[in-house]
Design a protein around this nucleic acid. Structure first.
Length: 266
DNA sequence: ATGCCTAATGCAATTAGA
């Protein structure tokens, strides 16, 4: 089962790129961020035509998250984090698909730091950590996937020294990320590629993609009930080179099929 | 410290992204 996350940076402006990638990559489940479209302007029919069920939470101009599935209907379990300090921002969608609980999230950018946006980022992160603990406590197979706007380590930044005061790399943000991981989540990309330089984002400035001046900020975290099924994790970095591309690249994992449930012999 | 680029809004220039 292939599960992907992709910050599309405008679902309508990037629709040809999104449809091309879906057709090529064939993810079973995908979460999208930065739709930048109000609820009624989401390209529902174009996505359904590719065989996907879809659920989304739009917002005018900014944010917006969606979930796609071609392996069964999405049973949405929530939109918005419990206790979100600003529930007008569409940043979280969660649903059950084919026996797995998927959370699609778009953590606030938080710049400039310090400031109210940075405070919001930290507050949102704390709400996510609390909710993630509740999800783990259920023992269910869960994937937390999305644009976390955090580079966890120096290996995840092309020039770490330039980013130390930035909201994506600040010590307190990285600490929050590791507090989340320490609950028992597995960072899928880093687990499959422990020593590689892997980026998921290259900004539009200064030919960042051409120079491979990137960041690893899109993550897929697996609950213990899923971690043993991880067989691959990759970034479709070539998509970043397409005409009219997002500044992020699609990032995905492959999970082995669940073992059949053993029944006790009577 | 800011621009470099890009989208949305809405029709010029601002806000936001990271």
């Amino acid at each position: 089962m292939k599960i992907a996350t992709y910050n599309v940076n405008g679902v309508n402006g990037r629709l040809p790129v999104l449809l091309r990638w879906l057709t090529e990559a064939q993810p079973d489940i995908a979460v999208l961020q930065e739709l930048k479209a109000p609820q009624e302007k989401f390209p529902e029919s174009a996505i359904r035509e590719l065989g996907y069920d879809v659920s989304w939470h739009g917002q005018k101009s900014w944010n917006g998250v969606a979930m796609l599935s071609r392996i069964g209907d999405i049973h949405e379990t929530r939109r918005g984090l419990p206790g979100d300090p600003d529930p007008t921002q569409s940043r979280y969608i969660e649903g059950a698909v084919n026996g797995i609980l998927i959370a699609g999230l778009y953590l606030p950018n938080g710049n400039p730091r310090p400031g109210p946006k940075f405070d919001y980022k930290l507050a949102w992160f704390e709400r996510l950590i609390e909710h993630a603990a509740d999800l783990l406590a259920t023992g269910a197979p869960v994937v937390l996937a999305g644009d976390f706007n955090v580079m966890p380590t120096e290996r995840d930044v092309y020039e770490p020294e330039r980013w130390v005061d930035d909201a994506l790399f600040a010590p307190e943000v990285r600490a929050a990320y590791f507090r989340l991981l320490e609950q028992g989540w597995t960072d899928a990309l880093r687990t499959v590629h422990p020593d590689e330089t892997i980026y998921t984002f290259w900004d539009y400035f200064r030919n960042a993609y051409g120079r491979n001046a990137g960041l690893r900020i899109d993550h897929l975290l697996l609950s213990p009930a899923l971690a043993h099924r991880l067989v691959d994790a990759q970034v479709d970095r070539h998509v970043r080179g397409w005409e009219k591309s997002s500044d992020h690249a699609p990032t995905w994992i492959e999970l082995a099929p669940a073992k059949p449930v053993r029944r006790k012999r009577v």
